[in-house]
């Protein structure tokens, strides 16, 4: 995920302090990985340097100065371009799993057991996500569904590979 674009997008609804930005990010997108303050401030310095945000106000207090950031016109254009751009689909060719299966067959190990072990692990993760969906709000459900559909796609590949192990063994041992 592009943290810079996400923070810029959050700024479109109005100026915010770094702390508010972090809180908004964590609330909407940081379920598993909350942002570090360091990431927020380093990202804001970069956006500032590139003219995509500006310092809207500085509050002096007992501690360090608190800067309030606002998005610039260039920043709004940048967010719009990012949202309009399709993400590159990742085909995951030559994945680690594929490599493991081929190596298991080449070294005459039990590739079916490798696939069974992986299926169990995928299902374990899917159970956790399903439980989180049952107890979570709509945002949780959508985030978990995204992960679940990807894991399900992996599992379909596992089943297909399991069904073709004999042929694959012939091919890699030829």
């Amino acid at each position: 995920m592009s943290i810079g674009h996400t923070l810029l997008g959050l700024l479109e609804s109005g100026p915010r302090h770094g702390y508010d930005l972090k809180r908004a990010f964590d609330e909407h997108f940081g379920h598993d990985r909350p942002l570090h303050y360091g990431q927020v401030y380093s990202t804001m310095s970069r956006l500032l340097k590139n003219g995509l945000v500006e310092v809207d106000a500085v509050e002096a207090g007992a501690g360090p100065e608190r800067k309030r950031y606002a998005i610039t016109d260039a920043g709004v254009t940048d967010v719009a371009q990012w949202l309009a751009r399709a993400e590159k689909p990742e085909p995951y060719l030559q994945s680690t799993l594929y490599t493991k299966v081929v190596l298991a067959l080449m070294t005459r190990r039990d590739a079916a057991e490798l696939l069974d072990t992986q299926r169990t692990e995928h299902l374990r993760l899917m159970r956790g996500l399903t439980e989180r969906k049952r107890t979570g709000d709509l945002a949780d459900q959508l985030i978990c569904d995204h992960a679940l559909f990807h894991l399900e796609a992996d599992l379909r590949w596992l089943e297909l590979t399991a069904a073709r192990l004999d042929k694959l063994a012939e091919a890699v041992r030829a």
Partner: peptide
């Protein structure tokens, strides 16, 4: 798999033989 994720554990049947999920 998304339906199986509602279970506590899985058993896989292949070629007429049932196997417990492998940890």
């Amino acid at each position: 798999a998304r339906v199986a994720a509602y279970s506590d554990r899985e058993v896989v049947v292949r070629d007429g033989i049932a196997r417990e999920g492998v940890a």
